[in-house]
Design a protein around this nucleic acid. Structure first.
Lengths: 238, 238
DNA sequence: CGGTGTGAAAGTTTTCACAGCG
DNA sequence: CGCTGTGAAAACTTTCACACCG
């Protein structure tokens, strides 16, 4: 074991988890994803500058972000990929296993049940529910679809802490209410509505149409800008 | 027609599209989504305070965000839903139709092909591609899966400006390169990797595992915070 | 009144720049 | 050297507060 390990970074004694900006946490996930790729590719260490370049951030930003959680680097060397991955997973919580329930087993729900990427980060979908009696009892990706009545019991018995909502917009809020009542602590919502939740329940929304909308804005804005500052016609001088 | 329409907000003469913060644009999409829901529910006007409350923002923030693009409100009244929807769609670019291509027709790709939410915002997936010869020629959601060789020609012929990458991580960069070469201006990437793209191509990444990771952090941090400031034991005094 | 639009203040995040370390 | 960790400065975003409008 690395006895000269820099200080901190053990779970449970991270410096004040309080008040870390959300945007920092979202970059942390990107750092982790990249680090895992690099480690698989056999890279042992990486500097803040290299990591930043790969993701489009500055070296200072990478260091500041990590600085919220402790000291992980070796001056003159950089960060050891394996150590940093472990530390980041401790911070993000993915060194422990998370059981997840899914509500809504339509097209998208079925696709998500088959997605292998969740497991790699220690998330397991342990049960799937649907309000449609015609779907209940069918087996999808190894899970038997259950009726919503069984939600609370399953959440309790399987120690489920997170839920995914994959139902139509009109049903999303009532499903969210049931997940909250069942004791879930966080929700990923794929329905295109804003949920009203008690403050102790975390939530992340994923709206696929909005992602495209953001792109259409960016593409349009780019064009508008280009028209505003037209590039010189003809070949640029040496 | 509303002849007393406040100024501005006509497409093509929006005040300096330059330098609108990304976070503002992402809230714009949320405003629009909520406005469309309200209009469907029959609501004619809404104030910045009401809209903000529904989404968890302050009234001032709503007004400042809109202020980047023009003046849309009526003092003492608020905003007219229909007008504001039209203005926001002009800004975001979704009053015009967008043709989109999808590359990668696995579980997730097929689910996305069937997703009705895109159409509602004026996005149409006009073609789907897959590298697997066994899939080429099959019809999914009314589209015949094409080989990647045909990508460039289809993009040109169908005036496609946006692409969706729904292939495994290992293939994402090469697919991105082909989309760029074909002339696409923006990419939504569902593969869990950061793409390297020329600066004139916009891109948005959607990583489903990362969304869960953000939740697991939030849930864990909440707990850590609660331990740091334990709530008083026993019943709170009247 | 009730509500917008907007400067100015407060707060937050990013970048700079450099001491210190192996 | 090369690179981290971190205060201090700069840039940016949010909130405040109020003139003005119908």
């Amino acid at each position: 074991m690395a006895e000269s390990r820099p200080q901190s970074a053990q779970p449970g004694e991270l410096p004040s988890d309080a008040g870390v900006p959300k945007v920092v946490v979202s970059r942390l996930s990107l750092y982790l994803r990249e680090l895992q790729r690099l480690e698989t590719a056999g890279q042992q260490t990486i500097s803040s500058g290299q990591l930043g370049t790969l993701l489009g951030f500055s070296d200072a930003q990478v260091r500041k972000d990590l600085g919220f959680f402790g000291q992980f680097g070796y001056p003159g060397v950089g960060y050891r990929c394996d150590e940093l991955i472990r530390a980041m997973r401790d911070i993000l919580g993915t060194n422990q296993a998370w059981n997840v329930v899914m509500v809504g087993v339509g097209n998208l729900g079925q696709a998500l049940l088959g997605y292998r990427g969740f497991g790699r980060q220690n998330f397991t979908i342990v049960a799937a529910f649907d309000a449609d009696p015609a779907k209940v009892g069918h087996v999808v990706q190894g899970l038997t679809i259950q009726p919503l009545d069984e939600l609370a019991a399953t959440v309790r018995e399987r120690h489920v802490r997170l839920g995914m909502i994959v139902v139509p917009a009109a049903r999303a809020q009532e499903v969210a209410d049931r997940l909250v009542a069942a004791g879930v602590e966080g929700i990923v919502n794929f329905a295109p509505v804003t949920l009203t939740l008690p403050p102790h329940v975390q939530n992340v929304g994923v709206d696929l149409a909005i992602e495209l909308e953001q792109l259409s804005f960016a593409v349009t804005a780019k064009l508008a800008k280009a028209a505003e500052f037209p590039p010189a016609t003809g070949s640029p001088g040496g």
